[in-house]
């Protein structure tokens, strides 16, 4: 009698466990689909940067009527560090033609952000998304990710990751295209 009861309890537990595993699996899929909907894509307008409580001087990086190179980086991301000289060169060479390079750090630790900046001394403006509000809105697919925004404030190109010269070539060609369009 007690054996039969034990078997019944075991059977029921196994059935329920299977159900729980299935539910857990489907729940894991939910964030992925939500992310895909929320991600900033080509053709989308850039959300107003002033709405995200970014730490730093946004006025140093004027965006209105300019081609904006918006780069998401972090101090713990090696490819981000590798991309800094290229971004600095873009700002120096084409800043006068209407290009603004703005780096947005997703560092949660302010000390890590400041130490990184004091080491690299970038020649473009950077701000810190301390509460990660902007990056959660944009939902970058990789670190780093660079968005190219035209003079009308629309995202035109998205560069995921940094692969050295090939990324630099593509980025320069796209920035050049956006500058030429505006003429």
């Amino acid at each position: 009698m007690s054996l039969a009861l034990g078997v019944r309890i075991l059977e029921r537990t196994l059935r329920l466990r299977r159900l729980a595993v299935l539910l857990g699996f489907f729940q894991a899929l939910i964030p992925a689909t939500t992310d895909a909907r929320a991600q900033l894509r080509v053709g989308d307008p850039l959300p107003p940067l002033g709405d995200f409580a970014l730490e730093g001087d946004l006025a140093a990086a004027p965006t209105a009527g300019r081609v904006v190179v918006l780069d998401f980086w972090a101090s713990w991301c090696a490819p981000c560090k590798a991309s800094f000289p290229m971004l600095g060169a873009l700002q120096r060479e084409w800043g006068g033609e209407g290009v603004t390079v703005l780096g947005v750090s997703v560092d949660e630790k302010k000390s890590a952000y400041e130490a990184f900046l004091s080491r690299l001394q970038p020649s473009f403006a950077t701000v810190r998304d301390a509460q990660q509000r902007l990056v959660k809105r944009v939902r970058v697919p990789k670190m780093p990710t660079t968005y190219l925004i035209d003079r009308k404030g629309v995202v035109r190109f998205v560069h995921e990751g940094f692969q050295g010269e090939s990324t630099e070539r593509a980025l320069r060609a796209h920035v050049r295209q956006l500058l030429d369009e505006a003429r």
């Binding site: 729980a20 539910l23 990789k142």
Partner: peptide, 21 residues
């Protein structure tokens, strides 16, 4: 109750690229 508990206690989550510090 078990379904709700399974939903509430699931540890499955995706670590986003900006959360990998």
């Amino acid at each position: 109750v078990l379904v709700l508990a399974a939903l509430g206690t699931s540890g499955c989550t995706a670590v986003q690229p900006w959360e990998r510090a």
